[in-house]
């Protein structure tokens, strides 16, 4: 947890009177003035009942969010423009149900007594890059909306937002140097080998997996594979800055999906051709972390 979060974490609890609460108080005041003016004991009683209700609501409101515990948070990277989905496991610690809750001002499901619950909290990923960790603030106006109490529940982890994957034109797919990794494109099967990250997923022998209970990849003889593809920043000179990033992002994903080995060259970064999830993530991460440019300089 960074320092900023730590300092934010201190403001655990905050209870405030809502507009509705102010309306309630005004009504009580009016009733009280009626009671004084007309010397009515019943109207005095009515005012006092409402004050009592208000105090009871104050405590119920606090307790409604006090005993919720955030257990774990899970979130997957998404592309710019898509929705991040935080999956938060929460549980009750105080043997009572927690109703009408809001998490970061969005309604979430109630938490039942002594049960674990999962909230799915979506948030639009409107800007590529690293979205830093933040605190999930849970709040509630239950039961009558007179008070709003809020507290920090759990830390939402940092997450990478990949660039939008939209290609303006087809990739140039420039081939350079050695055929770094053959893709075993041949006619006859010569055997199996244990799956390694980066192996062509289409060559996985599923029957062998069922038999041996581990992933096996088919090996063919005599053939030579495709050459590695290089995706180069300079290949996108004709586009504006964000389009270049989006197109490269699209090409990276397409190459990975097709099982092709690909390398990526960006200003100040180069990744040797490969085809694996870690390679994919590394390339997408580097693309996401490309500095943002102001609009006037969007065409580099």
């Amino acid at each position: 947890m960074n320092d900023q979060l730590k300092s934010g974490w201190k403001s655990v609890f905050r209870v405030s009177l809502t507009v509705n609460g102010v309306g309630f108080l005004c009504s009580v005041l009016v009733l009280f003035l009626f009671a004084v003016n007309y010397n009515s004991n019943l109207l005095f009683t009515l005012s006092f009942v409402l004050i009592g209700v208000m105090i009871v609501c104050f405590w119920l409101n606090i307790i409604n969010i006090k005993a919720i515990k955030g257990m774990t948070v899970n979130v997957q990277p998404v592309h710019e423009g898509q929705y991040l989905e935080y999956k938060i496991d929460v549980a009750d610690e105080g043997k009572r149900a927690h109703l009408d809750l809001m998490a970061n001002s969005k309604p979430v499901s109630d938490v039942d007594s002594e049960q674990q619950q999962q909230w799915a909290l979506t948030d639009k990923a409107d800007k590529r890059g690293l979205r830093s960790a933040s605190l999930l603030r849970v709040s509630s106006r239950w039961p009558l909306g007179l008070f709003k109490s809020a507290r920090n529940l759990i830390e939402l982890p940092a997450v990478v937002i990949y660039p939008e994957a939209v290609a303006v034109c087809p990739p140039r797919n420039s081939v350079e140097g050695d055929e770094a990794h053959l893709h075993n494109d041949a006619d006859s099967l010569v055997g199996l080998k244990e799956y390694q990250p980066g192996d062509n997923a289409r060559r996985i022998d599923w029957r062998a997996m069922a038999r041996l209970e581990q992933l096996q990849v088919k090996l063919f003889d005599g053939g030579s594979g495709d050459a590695s593809v290089w995706l180069d920043w300079d290949d996108t000179k004709d586009m504006n800055y964000e389009q270049r990033i989006s197109s490269l992002c699209r090409w990276v994903i397409d190459n990975h999906t097709q099982g092709a080995e690909f390398g990526l060259r960006l200003p100040g970064f180069g990744a040797a051709p490969a085809n694996s999830y870690s390679h994919l993530h590394q390339c997408l991460y580097q693309l996401s972390m490309m500095p943002h440019q102001v609009k006037s300089e969007s065409k580099v």
Partner: peptide, 27 residues
């Protein structure tokens, strides 16, 4: 639930009813 809120407010109501100064109007 409304009944419960009302019942919970009653002890406080009784206390205020007995002790709050009965300043008689008009205002």
């Amino acid at each position: 639930f409304a009944l419960k809120l009302f019942a919970l407010a009653l002890p406080l109501t009784a206390m205020l009813f007995v002790t709050f100064p009965r300043i008689q109007g008009p205002l």
